[in-house]
Each structure stands twice: as C-alpha cells, then as structure tokens.
Design a protein around this nucleic acid. Structure first.
Lengths: 334, 334
DNA sequence: TTGAAAGCGCTAACAA
DNA sequence: TTGTTAGCGCTTTCAA
C-alpha cells in the first residue's frame, strides 16, 4: 500500500495537521519542513487525490463530452482546452460518445458520479435532456459548437451563417451561378445555420435556390463522397460546390478524383476546416476555417470563470466567433 | 448538496448496509428494493464514486499518456481503447503531453495522485524514468508503439522494420533504384526501426545507402515539407521517396505540390498511415498502413487482463503487429 | 436480510 | 506553529 499522511506523521513525529498544512501552503517551521520532505522521499509519498476530493467536495476535474475524438476539429479544440485547464490546475476527463445519444447520456451520468466540477459538451442530443440532471447540481456547463433547445447555459459558437455567406459570395464574385452545397445532418444547429446562410445568400444574390443543388450529407467522409456523386449527376450545369465540414470536404475531393473530374477546371470547391489538408490537396483548397484555438480559449475561459466565481450567476453567456476564408486555388474564374 | 446514502437510509428507514447492498448487487427484500428506488428517484441520488473509490482503493480509471492528441494515429488508437475499456467498466483519463518530456513526467505523477488503476503510455521519454515511481505501486503499465529502455512492462508494437522493408521492396520491384527516405527523430524507436529496415533492405537489394538520400524529419507536417525540399535539392536522380509517418507524408505531398513536382511522373511516393488522406490525394497515395484498431484491442486487452488477474505476474508480454500496404497510384513503373 | 459501527486518507475547525 | 479530532460518503465486517 502507498504511504499516507499518517505515515508521514508517524515518521516525523509531527501531527497530521502539520503535514496537511505543508501540502496546502500553510506555515510550517523550516526544521519540520525538512523532516517532512525527507519522509516523503523515503516513503515515496504521493498525495491521494481521491481522499482529498472526498473531503473538499471538488475534484478539480472537468468532464468533456464530444461526438468523436477522432475528428480534427474536436481534437484541436480539446487539445487547446486541456492545455489551458491544466495550467489552472484542472484535469480533463474526455468521453467520446461516438455520435450516439445514448452514449452521450451515459457519459454525462458517468461524469456526474465521478463528481466532476463542470462539463464541457459538444452536444449530439439537440434536446439537451442528457444535461438536465447534471445541471441540477448547480455546477457549470459550457456548450461548444452547437446550440440546444432545452438547456440554459453558456455556449461558445461560430457564426456559421456568415461563414456560408462568405463562401457563397466568394464563388459569386468569381462568376459562379450554379452553386451546389453539401450540407450536414438537418438536426444539428451548425448544419442548419450553414444551410440558412447558403439559402439566404443565394436569394440576396438573386440566384434561384434549386432543390437539386442541395444535398444533406452526414458529416462523414463517405457521406461526402456520395453527396458529391449525387450533385454531379443531378446538375450537369453546376460549376461550384460549397462543402460544410471537413470530413465531407475530404469526401468531396475523393469523389471528384474518382470520377475523374478536375478541380477547379470542371468543378470549383470551397471546403471547410483543416488547413494542412487543404494545403496538401492539388490544387490547394480554398476553405472556410474555424478558429479552433479561439474556441478552446473561450470555452476554457468561461469554464474557469464559472468555477472560480461560483455563485456569481450572471445569466448565460454566448460567445460567437467569426470564421476566415483561406484562399487556395480551387476556384476557377469564370 | 447532493443526496447521500445516509439520506436514502433516513428516507427509507433502512440501514446504510442495506442501501449499499442494493447498489452492489446484494440481496435486498423486494419491498425494500422498491422503497429504495423511490427514494433514489425523489432525492435524485447519484452514487458518489469519489467516496466509493476511497473505500475500495480502486478508481476503475485508466490513465492514458500520449504525445499528441491532435494526431490521427493517436486519436484512432485512443478511440478504440476507450470503447473497449468503457465496456468493461473502466473510464479513461487522457493526458496529452505535447511531445514534452517534462509534461509527460507531470502527467504520470498527476495520474498517480489521481490513483488510476493503470497507465497506458505512448512514451516520449525513451529512458522511461517518468514511469519508475508509478511502477513501484505495482499497478500495470502498457506501452504502445514505442519501446523504452529502462522499464520492464507489457508493450504493443508494430513491426516497423518489416514495414519499411515492404515499402522499399515494392519500389524496387517497380524499377526504382534511387530511393530517398524521410525518417523520424533519431531517439524514437519507431523511427530507428523504420530507418534500419530501409538501410538493411537497400543493402539486401544491393543498392548503395547514400547519405544524401536520408533525411531525418521530426514527425511534423512542416518537417515533412522541409525534408522533401532537401531531398529533391540534393538528389536530382532520385525517383522515389519513402516517408515514415503520416504528418510528414502530408508535408511531403505539400512540398512536392509547391515545388510543382508531379507525383508519380517525377517522384514516386510511399507514405505512411491515414487511409482517407491517401485516398483524397490525387493521385491516390500508396501507403504503409498501421493496424490502429488492432493496436487498440491488444492494448486494452492486456490492460484488462492485468487488472482482472492482478498478482498473476507472468513476465512481460510484447505484442508485435504487422502493417499492410495499401496500393494507390503514387508509384511510377520505371 | 438487515443494522450498527469502523475506517479508507484527507482537510479544517479548534484548542493548545 | 502545531496537535487533536470530527467527518466527507462509501464499503464491509460483525451481530442480530
């Protein structure tokens, strides 16, 4: 068994409180400090956080529930958040729910039992029922990327409507009029917003919003491949496509390559996310880039504020971040 | 404050032991079972794992320490492991040490204080000093992907030498003789083995191992770009390059594209990892593919066995898995 | 089958 | 500055 504070006390002849005080930054006489440090060394003592957490009723751990860890967008955000939270003394417990509502619900319950101090969630269940029980504990919840109906809490979002609008206008300026879109799952707010941005901007530009130019993918690579095939087949006059997430962008490129359709000579493309991939494509892809680093900072920032100024219930904050377009060579000038 | 078992006891008029028994699958009279369930409902009771963990001296949590979460190879393995471990009742605590030895050491210490039941590590520090203290606790450690010197424990590896050899032979068969390699950091065992496979196979094939054909990259995208630039500049007669990890493969493709060098007409390529990326390249990349799913299964499997048959010290197991070549169109027939 | 009580390792209030 | 002590929420003996 590992050494305990009691062992340290016995070894040094000091009281438990002195030992505890040593670990919690209290005043300990220099001589005793030395004694304690020697004992720690000899006994290979390591604080037992489990016991500490039980006593202090705080775990210094934040639960993170995401749809898919194996997804660059998620991974980048998590990497950034973990870094910031760790630097503030908070650990991170990541649960990948594999885009499954039931697993998501289980993940939240699990984290609840683990008594995490807060939850960061990129939600799969758009109703938000999975968060209700946790919210009753009064601990903070921060939502990222996607809005949900039923839960009142902080969130960090991206201006998806504007992002889509920017992409469309860019294609328009280059002379494109028959512009297809590969949208996402209809129940996800980001997909709705990007689609709305497309439709609104098409109308603004006096372009007809034709049914056949709209395909709903499922945010996966294979979904992107299929969606591109459908678009190409249905729209012989289409000159450009806007793809609304990274996986489907990859899929769209695969689809075009496999159909032997040249980018941008035959079809122009505006993709989404993942700069290195865009750069590695030949020709380089023009993409809408989401500010993952800023999302991470904003999310961690809000969480830390809630944790450190608990009780300071200042209504719920919503941070909305802008996207940028990274120019490649995947748009032909018509 | 959240409800406790005491509250349930009070509410139902039962003793603490009965409540505990209910949660731990013991025999509880049907009538009391009902009462307890009602009380749980009313009080929104959730087991406090922190307290349970303190008492049972087990957290049912596995620490995972990796160099970079935002790396498909790592992310895929973790996703697979997490799934298996969760299905066996174990949670996962992931620490991304950002390829930093100091952070890696801190991560292990942190997990130690958190009293995780075991650690899975893709090591950055090849000396293994960071694991020494944890190993003294007698809890299991499973290493993935990379060997280290000082620590005797289970590991799950890939046959990197064979992987490199396969790639080389494939290029040789297609008529290539001046074959460059973009290797990894010299201290990492996977990089050493892949390099060894390259050198040995070149000799076997009676090809001179020329200094100028060997570049050591740093396993990053930008490193791949630079390495490819160097290789091309130094070797006008080089017809093919073998790249030894995914990030550098991406970098190599970017480098060639930016130099305006055509694949495979001017330079043939064998890359590493990430099938979707290879498929999205134009032309499709031929790659060495590592069995991430199998690595995940093997690692989780060994860990679970150690956890469930603790004390059954059967020496250390080393699992070595094979790679496969996925054929694309990035090799020219000379 | 159930209840009473001890104790896991720690923190913190209080007393010295 | 240090020691004593209670108790965080749970599991687990032991008795009933």
């Amino acid at each position: 068994m590992a050494a305990t504070m009691k062992d340290l006390a016995k070894r040094t002849g000091l009281g438990l409180a002195t030992i505890s005080s040593y670990f919690n930054g209290g005043n300990v006489r220099e001589k005793n400090r030395k004694k304690i440090e020697e004992a720690i060394e000899e006994l290979h003592y390591e604080v037992n956080e489990v016991a500490r957490n039980l006593k202090t009723n705080a775990t210094k751990t934040i639960g993170v529930v995401i749809p898919e860890l194996n997804n660059t967008f998620c991974a980048e955000i998590i990497t950034g958040m973990e870094d910031i939270l760790r630097n503030h003394g908070y650990a991170t417990m990541i649960c990948d729910c594999r885009t499954d509502k039931k697993l998501e619900q289980e993940a939240v319950e699990f984290l609840c039992r683990k008594r995490v101090d807060g939850i960061i969630n990129m939600p799969v269940d758009t109703e938000g029922g999975h968060l209700k029980a946790f919210q009753k504990t009064g601990k903070p919840i921060v939502l990222i990327d996607r809005k949900i109906q039923g839960v009142v809490c902080d969130s960090v979002l991206v201006d998806n409507e504007q992002a889509a609008s920017d992409a469309l206008k860019l294609l328009y300026e280059k002379g494109h009029r028959n512009i297809g879109i590969i949208g996402g799952p209809e129940e996800i707010s980001t997909a709705q917003e990007r689609m709305k941005g497309y439709c609104k901007t098409m109308e603004e530009l006096n372009l007809p919003v034709r049914e056949s130019l709209i395909v709903h993918g499922d945010y996966t690579i294979q979904g992107g491949v299929k969606a591109m095939e459908t678009l190409v087949q249905k729209n012989p006059d289409m000159t450009a496509v806007f793809i609304t997430n990274y996986e489907m962008t990859m899929g769209a490129v695969i689809g075009l390559n496999e159909l032997g359709i040249r980018i941008p000579e035959e079809i122009s493309l505006v993709g989404f996310d993942n700069l290195p991939f865009a750069r590695a494509c030949n020709p380089k892809l023009t993409i809408v880039s989401q500010p993952t680093e800023k999302i991470a900072e904003a999310t961690a920032g809000i969480m830390l504020e809630r944790l450190e100024h608990a009780g300071n219930e200042s209504g719920c904050r919503t941070e909305k971040l802008g996207t940028t377009i990274i120019h490649g060579k995947s748009i032909a000038q018509l």
